[in-house]
Amino acid sequence: MTDSRDISAEDQARHAQKMSKIKAARDRMMAGKTGEKGLVIVHTGPGKGKSSSGFGMIMRCIGHEMPCAVVQFIKGSRDTGERRLLETHFPHLCQFHAMGEGFTWETQDKRGDIAAAEAAWARAQDLIRDPEIRMVLLDEINIAFRYGYLDPMAVIEFLAAEKPPMTHVVMTGRNAPPELIELADLVSEIAVVKHPFRDGIKAQQGVEF
C-alpha cells in the first residue's frame, strides 16, 4: 500500500488535474440529465441478489418517506427478515402482501398457483394505480411468467396504459421475458460466480431470508 506521505507534490498536481477534467466531463453529462419519470425496473439473471436489490430500493423509499408497497408472487407465509422489518416498523409507509403459495415444486398444484398469481396481480394493479404509492415491488413475478401463471403481455400492456407517470415498478426473478426487458427503463442481470449452496450450505438467516 502506498503511504500518502510518499506522494510527491508533482504527483498530487497531476492527480488533481486529471480529476478536474473528469469532474468537468461528468458535470457536462449531468447537466443534460434533468428529466424525471416513474421507471419500470427489472432485476433478473441466475445470480443471488435480485429480490435483495428490490428491497434495498424499498428501504430507500422509506428513508425518503415515500409510500411504497411489496407484492410477493411466489414466496408465501415464510417468515423473512425483510417482511418482519417492514410489517413491524414501517407499516405506515410500506404495504406488504405475501400472496404466493410457495415454489411450484413445493405446492405441486398448478391450478392453485395460477389462482394465487392472479390474485397477487389484481392486488398489484390496485397498488400501482394509486398515485400516492411511489414504488411497487413485484417480487418474483418473473417466475410467475416463466411457469405460465401470468401472461406477461397483459402485465406489459397494463404498465404501458395505466401506470401513473411518477410511479416506479420493480420486477424481480430470473428469466425475465424479452418483451418485459424491452419495455423496462432499467434492467440489471445478476450473474452467478460462486454460491455456497453448491458446496452443501443451506439457505441461511440474514443472507437468504
Rank of each mutant, 00 (worst) to 15 (best):
L85T: 10
T104C: 14
R26G: 13
A191W: 15
A116R: 04
A9T: 12
V207L: 06
R146F: 05
V40T: 12
A16P: 13
E87Q: 14
E36L: 15
F103I: 04
L39W: 11
G32K: 02
I22W: 05
E182R: 15
A144I: 02
A9I: 08
H64V: 10
K18V: 03
L39N: 15
E189T: 07
Y149P: 04
R26N: 15
H89S: 06
E36H: 15
G173C: 09
G206R: 12
K21I: 09
R78F: 13
H15D: 10
A176V: 03
P131A: 01
K37E: 13
E179P: 09
C68H: 10
I141G: 06
D109F: 10
A122N: 11
K48I: 00
V193H: 11
L159M: 10
R83S: 02
S8F: 03
S52E: 02
I141N: 00
I114T: 02
Q125W: 03
M1D: 14
F145V: 09
M99Q: 09
E182S: 12
F103W: 14
H15I: 15
D3K: 10
P67S: 11
L86N: 01
W105Y: 15
S4D: 14
M171V: 05
D79L: 05
F90G: 05
L180Q: 02
E82W: 09
A98Y: 02
A119G: 00
D139S: 01
L150N: 00
M171C: 07
L159G: 04
V187Y: 06
E157A: 13
H64P: 10
R134G: 05
P164G: 02
A25D: 15
G45T: 03
G47S: 11
D199I: 08
P67D: 08
V40H: 00
A120V: 04
H92P: 06
A176L: 01
D130S: 10
L127G: 05
I22R: 13
F103A: 07
